[in-house]
Every structure is written in structure tokens, then in C-alpha cells.
Nucleic acid binder design. Structure first.
Lengths: 221, 221
DNA sequence: GCCAACATCAGGGGTAGCCCTGAAACCGGG
DNA sequence: CCCGGTTTCAGGGCTACCCCTGATGTTGGC
């Protein structure tokens, strides 16, 4: 009952891997309309063939550049309806925000070694081609981490922000407790909670109280 | 052999004192071209008579205003070559920075009760009229105190600033020692020295490490 | 109504960061 | 040449700040 099969363009500089994926996809009723090995080819193929989805391998270290990611960003801007599924060995965090831009429709990012099975991969291609969003859990973790890096104070509770504000004024735990009417133990409890929430693990080289104050000051310009 | 005597304008609301100073200066080959008793008179006299120097008494508490000081600031801005010698009973610290502004050429500030002798006073008038700078030692003390309040880091040694810079990055004493090749004990020694130099007494309500970091950050915008 | 998150606090323990004194080496200036 | 300031460090002590677990009451959402 399939009227038109999903049209796929494959981008990968490794011929073998490309062929393998193409064969795999065609076994699952996809139509691989083009295979390219570099960013220019990808651009041209998408413009000429108008596929439903581009499956792009980001092959970077140590040889290649980030051209896969860069052209992915470009493609999403130029072809809003195009699905883009990225495959990578590593997690390239730098381009994630710009890649998703405003919306996360028709985009995917999978880590190769974490794709458990063929079914999961095919499922991902289908979902992305249909405008869905498929992200490796690790990618999700990293993005929320990045968000909380942008405004780490939003992860704190109101009370914790009060305590941190006083810490940032150079007050001692004793003084904080006196001002907020808390026992010293409770102040310590809040301080500990602040540390963990700000992602400040107890490194021997860090003075976490100062680091917490610094993040607080940065968030308040 | 004096071609033109130094031309002086005297400003003081007390007639007796004014006359006494005028007589004293004329005994020492100065030419007192004008005597005034208020700020307006001073302004007009300087504009009309173009003296080399204005000797101004700041007569304030409890009656008068700070008009002497204010007009002194104004005069220095309007007449860059005019010497201005201020006489005061008290030390008025508030106007000192704005009084000196960019340069301290042709300006003087003496405390009456600390003028030891007539020779010293005459010498001061001469120096200021010639574009020099005469300041009571107490004034100097107060200015450097103000400067060290404005930039407390200048009171630190080079090594202490290195340590404080690392503290301001949230590093622990251990990490600081490792980076600067110091034993932990030496780091502690520097930290203690930084505290005392920044005037951070061991108050139970203060977290001095944070306070030291804050002053460091303030000094670096 | 229950569960999760928050806020409060206690008990009990470790140690980094602080205190003080003292001392040695160096260096520049009166 | 000695003297004050800087830099380096040790010994010895104290406690504020940190860790962990666990308990209680409150709140808000499903």
C-alpha cells in the first residue's frame, strides 16, 4: 500500500559504510536516491534530488573537518522540510544549539556505538523523515547540561538562591543562618545542595564555595 | 632683579586675617592685587586681575559653606595656569580628588595649625605660584589612603596578587601550591597576608576568602 | 490519597583552611 | 653594612566548612 517510498540521500566519505547503510535501508523499503562523499556533493544532491531525508555521517577526528555538521546546519536552514539524521562516533556539543535552532522538527542525532539494533536505526530514519525528532539520550543530557550552564541558577530552589546570594556577599555560614533564621546544620545542608545542583563535584583542586559564588555573579552580570 | 612681582589674590571672609596675610606677603615681595570675602568676589577678581595665584581660606564649620573649595575647583578648571593655595582649619577629604583632577600642578593644600613658620608659608605660596604642588603631609596620607581604598590590590605584593588571582578562579590552596610550586604552608602564609593587607579582620560573620575574591573582581571590573 | 520535591534539623566524622610563632634566605636602599 | 620588606617554609592547634545518613513536616501535582 506504500504509494511513494521515503527518498534518502546518504552522505559519508567511507564508501563501504555508505554502501552498507544503503543496502540496509533498501531492504526496509527506503529508496536511496543518492550517495555522496563530501559537503559539496551533499548540497548538490539535496538541491537536485529533493529527498525526504539526508542521513549524514560526521567523520571528523583526526582526519576530516566538521563539514558534515556545518552542512547539516546549512541544509536545515535552506530546506525546512528536509529531515536530517546525523550519525557520529563522538558527541560534538558545539554545534548542537545552532543545529536545532528554533525548532527540533525533522532532526536526529545518534551516536554510532549506541545504536542498539537495526530496527532502532530504521525506526529513527522513519521518524526523522516524517518530521520527528530522534536524539540519543546522551545528546539530551548534554543539551540540558548546556541549558543549565547558561542559567545554572534556575536549577536552584528559591531558598538555595537566598543562601547563595548571601554566600556571594562573603558571609559565613553562621551569618547566613542568623540572617535567614536557620540552624547552622540547615545552612550546611543548603550549601551542599547548591554544590551538587551546580554540578560542582568535590575536586581537590577546587574551592567550590568560591566557584559557586563565581557562577552566581556571572548569572547576575 | 625681580622683573614682575608675583601677583596674589586673597580670599577670606575674615578681614583681619586677610589683612595680616596681605601684609605678610607684601613684606616678602609679593603683590597683593586683590582681596575678596566670598566666592563671587573671588571669581570676578581672578577674571579681572589675572593673578598668578589665589590664596583661599576655606572657612566652613560651623557657619560657612564649602564655597571656598567649590570655587577653587571651578577656578582650576577655568584657569589652568592659575595657582591655587588652599588654607583650612580642617581636612576636607571629599573634594580632594576632584580638586586635583588630572594633574596636581599649581595646587596646594595646607592645614593652618600645621604651618610651622612664616618662611614655610611664603615658600609654599612661591612654589604654588610657580606651578608646583604643596600638600600637607596629612593630606598626602589621606589621599593614599583613599587610593588604596579605591585600588586595594596595589597594597599587595606581586606574589600575593598571583595567589589571589588563582583564588578568584575558585582554586583550592592545594591547586594554587601545585601551580606556583609552593608548599601548602606557604600558600596559607600568602593567603593570611592577603587577608590582613586587604583589611579583612577575622570576623565570625565573614567568609574572608570570598570577600578577598570579591575585592579582586571589583578591581578588575 | 500518594509520591516527589522541598525545607528543616540532628548526629557524627574528616579535613581544608584558618590561626600563631618563628626562622631562614634574599634583596634593595639609607 | 645592617635593616626593612619579601618570599619561603615548619610546627602545632582550632574550627568552620565540608562529607554522609536519616528523620520530620509541608507542599503540590497526578
Amino acid at each position: 500500500m506504500r504509494v511513494t517510498p521515503t527518498r534518502v540521500v546518504l552522505a559519508d566519505d567511507a564508501l563501504l559504510f555508505r554502501q552498507a547503510i544503503a543496502w540496509l535501508l533498501e531492504q526496509h523499503d527506503f529508496q536511496v536516491v543518492g550517495q555522496v562523499s563530501d559537503a559539496d556533493g551533499l548540497r548538490n544532491a539535496v538541491s537536485a534530488l529533493r529527498p525526504d531525508i539526508a542521513v549524514i555521517d560526521i567523520r571528523m577526528p583526526p582526519t576530516g573537518r566538521l563539514e558534515g555538521l556545518e552542512s547539516a546546519v546549512e541544509l536545515r536552514a535552506r530546506h525546512p522540510d528536509l529531515g536530517v539524521l546525523l550519525l557520529s562516533h563522538y558527541l560534538e556539543s558545539h554545534y548542537l544549539p545552532v543545529l536545532f535552532g528554533a525548532n527540533a522538527r525533522g532532526v536526529g542525532y545518534l551516536l554510532k556505538e549506541r545504536v542498539t539494533g537495526i530496527e532502532a536505526f530504521v525506526e529513527a530514519v522513519t521518524r526523522v523523515a516524517a518530521g520527528g525528532c530522534v536524539l540519543d539520550p546522551e545528546v539530551v543530557d548534554l543539551m540540558i547540561a548546556a541549558r543549565s550552564r547558561r542559567d545554572p541558577l534556575h536549577t536552584l530552589t528559591a531558598r538555595e538562591r537566598e543562601v547563595l546570594a548571601l554566600m556571594a556577599e562573603g558571609r559565613s555560614n553562621q551569618a547566613i543562618g542568623a540572617q535567614l533564621v536557620l540552624t547552622p546544620k540547615t545552612v550546611e545542608s543548603h550549601v551542599r545542595s547548591i554544590f551538587t545542583r551546580l554540578g560542582l563535584a568535590p575536586e581537590p583542586d577546587d574551592h567550590r564555595r568560591v566557584l559557586a559564588v563565581l557562577t552566581y555573579l556571572r548569572a547576575h552580570h
